[in-house]
Design a protein around this nucleic acid. Sequence first.
DNA 1: AGCACGCCGACT
DNA 2: GTCGGCGTGCTC
Length: 804
Amino acid sequence: MNFASVIVDVAAKQTDRAFDYSIPQQWREILVPGMRVIVPFGPRKVQGFVVDVKLETDVKRTKPIAELLDLTPVLTPELLELGHWLTEKTLCFKISAFQVMLPAAMKAKYDKKILLQPGVESSQLHSKVQPYFQHTSEVMWSDIEKSESVNSFYRDIQKGLLEVVYLVKSKGNKKTVKALRLAQPPEHVKQLLQELPKQAEKQKQVLEFMLVQEEVVAQRDIMTVLNVTSAPIKGLVSKGLLHEVDMEIYRDPYANRDFIPSKPFSLTDEQSAAIKPILRDIENHEHDVFLMYGVTGSGKTEVYLQSIDQVLKQGKEAIMLVPEISLTPQMVKRFKERFGSKVAVMHSGLSAGEKYDEWRKIQRKEVSVVVGARSAIFAPFQHVGIIIIDEEHETSYKQEENPRYHARDVAIKRAEFHNCPVILGSATPTLESFARAQKGVYKLLPLRERMNKSALPKVDIVDMREELRDGNRSMFSTLLLEKIRERLERREQIVLFLNKRGHSSFVMCRDCGYVPSCPHCEISLTYHRYQNRMKCHYCGYEELTQTACPECESDHIRFFGSGTQKVEEELGKVLPEASVIRMDVDTTSRKGAHEKLLTKFGNGEAQILLGTQMIAKGLDFPNVTLVGVLSADTMLNLPDFRAAEKTFQLLTQVSGRAGRHHLPGEVVIQTYAPEHYSIQLASQHDYDTFYLEEMKLRQAHRYPPFFYLALVTVSHENVAKVVSVTGKISQYLRQKLSPQAVILGPVASPIAKIKDRYRYQCMIKYKLEPNMIPALKYVVNQYQDQMQQEQLTITIDLHPYSMM
DNA sequence: AGCACGCCGACT
DNA sequence: GTCGGCGTGCTC
């Protein structure tokens, strides 16, 4: 092939198309779509993805491809196609779609440097430039970019004294170690071994070792096994007996850990019934979407494991998605125990290099199972046999940046391609999924019994308003305290859950009601006791905590809300004998801290585990018999039509942590809205009724799953501008879409200002709108120039999860 | 996105 | 006359 169509790494409307390049002779046989290349683009060089190769082009003057970055394509034909689909579905640039499918380490970094042209003396340069070239002939652009001499540099560049060179590096490369192999055939080496001088004892040892080893051995290994230094090895290399090579090694984050192989458990009748249709699909290479609706502790994971096992037996591969937050060591352990080294793990806790290595294992077909968070859905497998999404309702499956995709949609798309089943698993499915299951679009696989037949925990709802009336101003109700004391006495464990979302610890003046808020964002500041500072969680702004109110100068400043730190303190006051482990962003930010704290709790080193969201998922400690939810309704008041659903899911999830084993569990839910149906029904473990209730509301208000949503958010420094642009967009959409579509807006976004930029939005509720995508594309096109020139931003989220 | 090209105001 | 402001348009 003579020409290649390349999508270049420039995310902009005007460059969001393929550019044709000629393929230099030496690569004509090798280059295929899906490879990364470096191409000249204008005056610079950029990375790009080859999407097509062809014999001819309409372009008159093509430039040649400058460099080939891959010998095996990093995107399979399927993934290339998937990229185009993503572009259409999420309205993102092609380059963004491709980039999101690869580990971040493969994204190009650009740099510039300035070279002294050959034959030019530094004395010819501008006086300001000269000192830079005293001892060198090249200067990095970044070193002079901000200096006042930039202009002088420009001048010398124009004069031709200096040359600008554009560099592209695809960093995060393979990690290699120095390794050795025999430089000659073994027989030959055996003979030469005899001829080595007597005193070369160590060299002989090394050679003998090499003769019995696999082809390539890391130098480090030779040194430790034979207890020699590098000297004899060097000697053999210089004699031409050994050859130095680079050996690619993987950073294995789970090395040095023993996994005891586990065998499949025998399934309960319910599990067998659930797995049957899945196995049938695997057998017949058929595609279906299954919604596995199973209460906590019903043994979903075992069904996943055995389905995957079946897929592996067919020589195919499996993708298993779990929410980031529950990608716990416990979870990984279960997979490693069952599938050993066939498993790659991908989550955000890995370094860029580690993620790259896991990705490489997949690409090189060294593993056949990947367990990972959202982005693992793009694993470059070529024979996918099953895709599983655990905790299907989790919001982390929706990416909140471009491309704003939902892993579930990608999973279904990929599974259609591979003709394989998708399993969505949850104890509290999203209404969207459950509704589809009701309609028969998805196949429902119910698991209604807990595996050990243990009853679901008894749930008590405590009305905190009554507590307050009875004079209890603390954050622990009498009932909860009593139950905690009971467990402490019995040496059982307790999990306390604090939903920090909503109003977290903020500060208010009791006299005038003043609440310190961020000067750049419309959001109140959060109090951080540790540094005694107020911080903005959106832009990072911080200030010292005030001791007097800046408005009325009163010193009645009060700290409201209850962060985990404050709960811990109070717990210490009421129950000084209790040992507490606190888990939140502050205590788990260090790598591995999360795991360490959980292990400590598992070992019984503390009796109470206190934490936020992150302790709600996937934890399983046999000794936990009480779960306390400190304030169940903080989430309920969020400006989000899914607030009730999220509350129900969270409460159900948290309750599931209690009494999973032989000890019976109890749950105490503290709330200011005890009569709310989501709280009532969660306490009764009644998903079905919740589903029906919530569906009525969704239908009445025209929300999903009855209507689809699209959210257009406009932001700019100037309020008037934002309002007028949002208004025009709303108007345009009103006129383009059918009368059945509901167009709300312009309205201020729930967070009306972030980082000094005002935010307004237009929300569209629609059912069938073939014009939707074209209309939105048109809108973006119309404001293209303003978006560049005036830093106006318009973001479009189709099927948004967060209204913020 | 960059970057060059090009056309106007204010300085050596 | 030249330097430098940033509007306009292109990148195979």
